[in-house]
Design a protein around this nucleic acid. Structure first.
Lengths: 163, 163
DNA sequence: TGACGACAATATGAGTTCCGTAGCATCGTC
DNA sequence: GACGATGCTACGGAACTCATATTGTCGTCA
């Protein structure tokens, strides 16, 4: 297939090293973002898990404690405590479901989001500056890779939960 | 500069939307990876913070509890408990520093890494398959973006710690 | 209409973890 | 040889996670 005999082996090795580089960078990125979240969480009196739940509530619309527990892989009773703290801190509201009076819908309050946005301002500006250095097609590639990696992570987590 | 008058505004709007897409994907990726770590941590009886510390020890070579505390943004006394659990679980060893007998060096034991690798196997395979779909230059761009984003996260965390 | 099982959320108690302070051992320097 | 400084850990209080049991509500069937 190839015009040079040794290029196939070299090619494969280089590809593997390249993929390894991407994976290492991904792991380090994950670690560093966790740390950043931990720091920011310390500023607003939110634990890491609380922070994750708040993000889920804000991103995936209003949802019930059960759905949140399933999504976060936590015990329903744990969600009660988390929502208690989030509600006391003024981050979310607990509302009774209009028709099903057993159910509760947790809704994010947009008020304190500005506070969070200010804490993330530095990171946000850095990302804007970083994105500005890439071309359109490159940004498309990056966004696509991030989305697909997210989906892979979701699938891996589901597999672990099931198996 | 541009040959079409209205393309500038459209271009800027499209660029901003593209950058927003990247940032949203990044946030969701961070959330999903945190969840995956939480699930995997549950399999090996490791808390999220313990997991982060173990990753740091394995990646940044043997280091002292103080250095680890500084790097992770945790109280030194907290590190003692974390290292206790890691040591009891057979993940790391506590060794006396050869010359400075006050100091302790925490070293990762490679033994149980295979166990971790098996838990990450699904995610690892998905990432390999994902990387295989991109060209060399695209993978370079992705790795570069990830590294620079990591650096931005580190800078943002440092700013928060200082200010 | 009334009764039954199923579902959703929360109160409670046990076990564990995080952090602040104090204490011990050791190093570098004078 | 003595002194302050450094590095780590023991101890106590406060907070968190989780499992179980309880309360209130819904859907269904006789």
């Amino acid at each position: 297939m190839s015009s040079v005999a040794s290029s196939n082996a070299d090619e494969r090795r280089r590809r593997r090293r390249l993929a390894g580089t991407v994976k290492d960078a991904l792991r380090e990125l994950n670690l560093q973002l966790s740390l950043l979240n931990h720091h920011i969480g310390g500023r607003v009196a939110l634990r890491g898990v609380d922070f994750d739940c708040l993000d889920m509530i804000g991103q995936h619309g209003p949802l019930s404690p059960s759905a949140l527990a399933h999504r976060a892989g936590l015990h329903p009773a744990t969600i009660t405590g988390i929502v208690d703290r989030l509600e006391k801190g003024g981050w979310v509201t607990r509302e009774r479901h209009p028709t099903d009076r057993r159910a509760v819908v947790i809704r994010a309050i947009p008020g304190r989001n500005a506070e969070l946005f200010r804490l993330y301002a530095g990171m946000n500006a850095s990302l804007d500056a970083l994105c500005a250095e890439y071309g359109d097609d490159q940004l498309e590639v990056i966004a696509d890779f991030l989305r697909r990696t997210t989906e892979a992570g979701r699938a891996a987590a589901d597999d672990l939960a099931d198996g």
